[in-house]
């Protein structure tokens, strides 16, 4: 899932390891999400969004918006 995790993290001046510690996930998980290789669970997405103070959809871009159904 496309996201702007890397941009938000860099804007905060955090390394991947620091963000991982803050969210209590592994650094590999942050790397995988930033590289669009892993879609986080809903709780993890909300946790990240809450950490950055943004809405989930501002962090992870909904690929289904605009679909008729």
């Amino acid at each position: 899932m496309k996201n702007c995790l890397r941009d938000l993290r860099k804007a905060r001046g955090l390394s991947q390891a620091e963000l991982a510690e803050a969210i209590e996930v592994s650094r590999q998980t942050i790397i995988a999400m930033e590289a669009d290789k892993y879609d986080p669970s809903l709780p993890m997405a909300y946790r990240l969004a809450a950490y950055f103070g943004v809405a989930v959809e501002d962090l992870f871009f909904n690929p289904f918006v605009g679909d008729a159904g």
């Binding site: 996930v25 592994s26 590999q28 669970s41 993890m44």
Partner: peptide, 8 residues
């Protein structure tokens, strides 16, 4: 202790 991705 593992996160979702590690468990997966």
């Amino acid at each position: 202790t593992m996160d979702d991705m590690q468990k997966h």
